[in-house]
Amino acid sequence: MISSLTLVDWRQRVAGLYDAVRAQPDPHAGWDLWRTGRDELFASHPQTPLAADDPLRGSGLPYWPYDPALRFDVELEPVPESEPRLVDAGDDGTIQMHPIGRAVLPIGGTLDVWWLRQYGGGIFIPLRDGTAGDGSYGGGRYLLDTAKGAWLGGTDRTLTLDLNFAYHPSCRYDPRWQCPLAPPGNTIDVRVEAGERL
């Protein structure tokens, strides 16, 4: 029961961070708020994926410097209907990821945009770029997960993507977590030296 309540609190705080980011007119200042808030959660929250003796609790999570050129609005391009991608999530069961579109990145490459059926639904965009295993977690990072409040804006046809907000999934820090990792349609060759790094 206690872990369930602390997990709810964790998710509420993460969503609150993104609320603060969206309320900030300057994207760089919003990113600074997000980083500070994440460091506080990872340092002391009961649901942190960091071990008690992990030095990142004191130093904070490492990031590349903010790059304003890596924030853009992209159109959600249609994709053919296909079967959902099923991902084993351990105790959380099987995650169903349904493709809803594709985002063309101005820096090169495309990312599949997924709709998660769990948690009441949400847009999910994982990212595995040229830094995977050489600067960032080998399994990739998450760019957008609206089930956790990670929404930077958009319209009925566009998404605001800011690669500076790419972050490692919890399984990067603790093997007890089973995370959906970036499938082939979310893999690009370009090195995205923005967001959370090793």
Rank of each mutant, 00 (worst) to 15 (best):
D39I: 01
E40D: 05
F42N: 01
F42Q: 00
S44M: 00
P46M: 01
P46D: 02
P46Y: 00
Q47C: 03
Q47F: 01
Q47R: 06
P49A: 02
P49W: 01
A52H: 00
R57E: 02
R57N: 05
R57W: 07
G58F: 00
G58A: 05
L61Y: 01
P62F: 00
P62Y: 01
Y63H: 11
Y63R: 08
W64S: 02
W64F: 04
P68S: 00
P68Q: 04
L70R: 02
R71G: 15
F72D: 02
F72T: 06
D73W: 03
V74L: 03
E75C: 04
L76M: 07
P78S: 11
V79P: 12
P80E: 10
P80S: 11
P80N: 07
E81F: 10
S82V: 06
S82C: 10
E83Y: 03
L86Y: 01
L86R: 03
L86E: 03
D88A: 11
D88F: 06
D88G: 03
A89C: 10
G90V: 08
D92F: 13
D92L: 15
G93D: 09
T94I: 11
Q96K: 07
M97H: 13
M97L: 15
P99S: 14
P99A: 15
P99I: 12
I100Y: 10
G101I: 09
R102F: 13
R102S: 14
A103N: 11
V104G: 13
L105Y: 13
P106W: 13
G108D: 14
G109A: 11
T110R: 15
T110I: 08
T110A: 15
L111H: 09
D112H: 07
D112W: 11
W114M: 13
W115S: 15
L116N: 05
L116M: 11
R117L: 12
R117W: 05
G120Y: 10
G120F: 08
G121V: 07
G121E: 14
G121P: 13
I123V: 15
I123T: 14
F124M: 09
L127S: 04
L127V: 15
D129M: 08
T131H: 07
A132C: 12
G133M: 08
G133S: 10
D134M: 03
G135D: 15
G135Y: 13
G135M: 14
S136V: 10
Y137R: 10
G138C: 11
G138S: 15
G139N: 08
G139K: 12
G140D: 09
G140K: 08
G140F: 12
Y142R: 10
Y142S: 04
Y142M: 09
L143W: 13
L144G: 02
D145N: 15
D145R: 09
T146H: 07
K148T: 12
K148C: 10
G149D: 09
G149A: 06
A150C: 13
W151S: 08
L152Q: 04
G153H: 09
G153Q: 08
D156L: 12
R157G: 06
T158D: 04
T158G: 07
T158Y: 07
L159H: 06
L161W: 10
L161P: 09
D162L: 02
L163T: 06
L163I: 10
N164G: 06
F165V: 05
F165H: 09
F165Q: 05
A166L: 15
A166G: 14
H168I: 09
P169K: 05
S170D: 14
S170M: 13
S170K: 14
C171E: 13
